[in-house]
């Protein structure tokens, strides 16, 4: 399974710093927001990699870097052996066909003045060689059918659809160019809980049908648990723990992961109040001025002076069978349901 030839996407030390500038005409850089600060990911064929973390940890910036909506400050995004970060013009346009994204908010991600047919057909208009002109209307209808919408609704406008249906339109657009990889940036967080399940199930069945690989970004741990094969936990622009999803959910070793998991609501009322609840204090530090050493130390109950001076690397440790970026990583059974 972990054959190198199976790799469809890899990032190497991916960094994105947004400069903080002063002045209007003569701008001077006074600092940088380290939104993504050295991320290494591997995604294999047909696999779903879940990325979790709280708001502001750099998840969405990471997603934008992966689909080349932002240029990385440094590092590489390798899709099919090509570094997307270096490409531009025609070659970038061609490379984009392999990796597409489903955006978070289905209410703002569809142009209100275009019909559904135009929205889903836009990738074909941009890449005329993808589908011959005569077959485009047919292809659009097939895509609508594929995501469970009525193919006759091509002439409707986005506002005539519900949130879940709009997200299906967004998924159809992402599928149009037959990409291998789809980055889902919180694809269900803007939807009703009842609709979330339908969209997740659709994504799963599409994965099986088309052999897609997903990067699934979310702050909802139960959604990620359901869909992911592997999970990476992000904090302040860095991955703090990663592994197969059972390892992360059953045997978390990083204190931040443990705290996150303890915050997941428990459906069984009998277990409520009986489990280990970890309440973190304080807010996420500013990514413009992250703490020295371990970035989590300001909110960690295990923090020692050593943590302030030595940055923990994401690696397999004595008491952590999967990579964890904590000097004192150890399994703590936070949650069982």
């Amino acid at each position: 399974m972990s054959d190198a030839s199976d790799l469809v996407l890899e990032t190497r030390n991916l960094v994105k710093h947004f400069p903080i500038t002063q002045g209007v005409v003569f701008k001077s850089k006074v600092g940088a927001v380290r939104a993504v600060d050295g991320v290494d990911l591997q995604l294999r064929r047909g696999e779903t990699l879940g990325i979790v973390g709280e708001s502001g940890c750099g998840k969405s910036t990471l997603a934008k870097l992966l689909v080349s909506l932002e240029k990385p400050t440094s590092g590489e995004v390798i899709v099919r052996g090509e570094n997307m970060a270096r490409l531009s013009g025609q070659s970038l346009r061609r490379a984009r066909r392999n990796i597409q994204m489903v955006l978070q908010d289905p209410y703002t991600s569809l142009n209100p003045r275009m019909t559904v047919g135009d929205i889903i057909g836009e990738p074909f208009a941009v890449h005329p060689d993808a589908v011959p002109r005569a077959g485009r209307a047919r292809a659009v209808q097939e895509l609508l059918d594929l995501v469970g919408l009525n193919p006759d609704h091509v002439n409707r406008y986005p506002h005539q659809f519900s949130g879940g249906q709009r997200q299906r339109i967004g998924i159809a657009r992402a599928l149009a160019l037959r990409p291998e990889i789809i980055v889902c940036d919180e694809p269900v967080s803007a939807l009703d809980v009842s609709i979330q399940g339908q969209v997740i199930n659709l994504l799963e069945s599409l994965q099986h049908e088309l052999g897609l690989s997903y990067i699934f970004i979310a702050h909802d741990l139960s959604v990620v648990r359901h869909i992911s094969d592997r999970v990476a936990v992000m904090y302040l622009g860095k991955i703090v723990e990663s592994g197969y999803h059972l390892a992360i959910y059953e045997q978390p070793t990083h204190p931040y992961t443990q705290a996150l998991l303890s915050a997941v609501p428990v459906p069984d009322p009998r277990l409520r109040g009986r489990r280990d609840l970890i309440e973190l204090e304080g807010d996420v530090p500013s990514p413009a001025d992250p703490p020295s050493g371990c970035r989590f130390r300001t909110r960690c109950w295990k923090a020692q002076p050593y943590c302030a001076d030595h940055e923990p690397l994401l690696q397999i440790r004595q008491r952590s069978p999967h990579p964890s970026a904590c000097h004192y990583a150890e399994i703590r059974d936070v949650i069982r349901y």
């Binding site: 955006l103 836009e122 967004g170």
Partner: peptide, 19 residues
Amino acid sequence: DYVAAARMVGAGPARLIFR
């Protein structure tokens, strides 16, 4: 977001501006 979505597909400036 829909402009970002079009950019992601690879749309050029003319399409982004006029569509």
